[in-house]
Simulated assay, not measured.
Amino acid sequence: MTAPDPSTTMADPSAQVAEQLLRLTRKLQRAQKRYLDPIGITPAQARLLRALSHHDRESGPPRMADLAGRLEVVPRAVTTLVDALEANGAVRRVPDPVNRRVIRVELTEEGRQTLRALREARRGAVEEILAPLTAERRAALGGLLAELLGGGPAPCGD
């Protein structure tokens, strides 16, 4: 596969916007990683913790399969993430009260503290990225992104 011709990319506004979005995504991921490193958590583990925090409280802790579906990953990936988070004390596996073959995953108090630190890290990373923009331009960007995402909030795992 060959690299796109820069002269074509610059002449095509859609291609230019696509490239800018990709570059912005990478920049945000790098910033978030810098903020997550001191917490001792990976971006994938952070996504799982956020998914747990948004799970329907009335149905009880989610099953591993529920988490895999919500995160759009294979169940084995969730097992690996839960293993690491359980070793750190952020989550615990609990038996399903109705079906003993089913394992559910719940946040611990340590996990809730980690989530608070994650929210602060995410805010810091976003603030770093958005620093050059005025409040009005941030609002305009937010409106444009919401429109591109279909008007709804981003999934919790993203």
Rank of each mutant, 00 (worst) to 15 (best):
82 V>Y: 10
81 L>T: 02
88 N>Q: 12
89 G>E: 10
72 E>S: 15
53 S>H: 05
58 E>C: 12
78 V>A: 03
64 M>N: 02
40 G>S: 05
65 A>S: 14
41 I>E: 00
79 T>P: 01
64 M>P: 05
52 L>T: 09
72 E>R: 15
45 Q>G: 09
48 L>P: 09
64 M>C: 11
85 L>E: 05
73 V>L: 15
67 L>W: 07
67 L>C: 07
37 D>M: 15
69 G>D: 11
48 L>E: 00
54 H>T: 00
59 S>T: 11
83 D>K: 05
88 N>R: 12
42 T>M: 14
87 A>W: 08
69 G>N: 10
50 R>F: 10
57 R>E: 05
62 P>H: 06
39 I>G: 01
78 V>R: 03
43 P>D: 11
83 D>T: 00
77 A>E: 03
45 Q>D: 01
66 D>H: 09
73 V>I: 14
86 E>R: 03
56 D>W: 15
83 D>H: 05
57 R>Q: 09
87 A>F: 14
82 V>P: 04
71 L>P: 04
56 D>Q: 12
61 P>I: 01
38 P>T: 00
69 G>Y: 01
76 R>W: 02
70 R>C: 12
85 L>D: 05
57 R>F: 06
55 H>D: 04
43 P>E: 13
51 A>Q: 03
40 G>P: 08
64 M>T: 06
35 Y>G: 02
52 L>H: 02
75 P>E: 10
46 A>N: 08
47 R>K: 10
45 Q>N: 03
85 L>V: 09
35 Y>A: 14
74 V>D: 08
36 L>W: 02
35 Y>R: 12
48 L>Q: 06
42 T>I: 13
70 R>N: 09
46 A>C: 12
